[in-house]
């Protein structure tokens, strides 16, 4: 009886601690959000002040309000670049996401296999090390000749920028697999392939997701370079046209839209990460 009472008290203690922890976590989350909002608002106020007080030449920078106005205008006015903002966004999403997807599909399995199988690593690593430092933009002339000026060539340029972090992170992730888990698998008679699938890959998941996030960022940052190849629309193209016609509002509108899409996609990725590696997050 006494023992039962003790157990009940213990479980009550645990649930109280858990509740406390949850409350603390929630508090921290709220603080994070509030601080984030303060950071953004503070930046916008500072930006507005710089423009209003003309601390920087107004020909070189416009206020946040003017950027928002230009974003709205680009929903119904094709000038000066010849397309509407939704068309630019759709084109860029198509290019950036297809290049990113290709990088993830190729980079992650390759990184995992290179990290797990030594001969595979010895075979592919020299080639990868040669490709790795080549700037994605330098592929442009070759891509024009090989793949033309359509979506495929731009997708491949984005692939080169997103592929490297996807591969490196999966490679490092699986290399860091705890040897104890591998030994347990071996002791239980599991094959190398089974240990690779059941121990190595799950253990590498947090690093893989970190790599995916970097790849996604790289995909968007290479967009302008990819659209330099040839374009009729796209956010990178919009920024280039803004530069060509010295329309700072157009340039900044393109930049802000890329930033917002980047945040949205990273958010989606984090949600996916929480679902896939619940045990870790």
């Amino acid at each position: 009886m006494t023992q039962n009472t003790n157990e009940t008290n213990k479980s009550l203690d645990y649930s109280a601690i858990r509740d406390k922890e949850r409350a603390a976590m929630k508090k921290q989350q709220i603080r994070t959000v509030i601080l984030g909002i303060i950071g953004i608002v503070g930046f916008l106020v500072l930006w507005t002040l710089v423009v209003e007080l003309e601390l920087i030449d107004n020909r070189l920078i416009v206020s946040p309000l003017q950027v928002v106005q230009e974003i709205i205008v680009k929903f119904y006015d094709t000038n000066p670049d010849g397309a509407l903002l939704p068309e630019h966004i759709a084109e860029s999403l198509k290019i950036a996401l297809s290049g990113f997807a290709l990088a993830v599909i190729v980079g992650i399995p390759l990184g995992l296999l290179m990290g797990w199988y030594k001969n595979f690593d010895r075979f592919l690593r020299p080639l990868f090390e040669i490709i790795r430092p080549i700037p994605p933009i330098s592929w442009i002339p070759i891509m024009i000749v090989l793949l033309g000026i359509g979506v495929t060539s731009k997708m491949v340029i984005i692939f080169f920028s997103a592929f490297v972090p996807a591969l490196i992170n999966s490679y490092t992730g699986i290399k860091l697999t705890n040897q104890v888990f591998i030994n347990v698998g071996k002791t239980c008679g599991a094959s190398n392939w089974t240990i690779f699938r059941k121990v190595g890959i799950p253990s590498a998941m947090p690093m893989i997701f970190a790599g995916i996030k970097v790849s996604l960022g790289n995909s968007w940052s290479t967009l302008v370079a990819a659209e330099m190849l040839a374009a009729v629309r796209g956010l990178g193209y919009l920024i280039m046209m803004g530069r060509t016609y010295a329309r700072v509002d157009v340039i900044m509108a393109g930049m802000v839209v890329i930033g917002v899409i980047g945040i949205a996609l990273t958010g989606l990725l984090e949600l996916l990460e929480k679902k896939v590696i619940k045990w870790k997050v």
């Binding site: 024009i144 000026i149 190849l229």
Partner: peptide, 24 residues
């Protein structure tokens, strides 16, 4: 007008390269 054609923005040397590859 410009709306009747499709102008692909490319630098002149790149345009020559793409044209030689059968583009445009």
């Amino acid at each position: 007008t410009e709306a009747d054609v499709n102008i692909v923005h490319m630098e002149v040397p790149a345009a020559a390269q793409a044209f030689a590859a059968g583009e445009g």
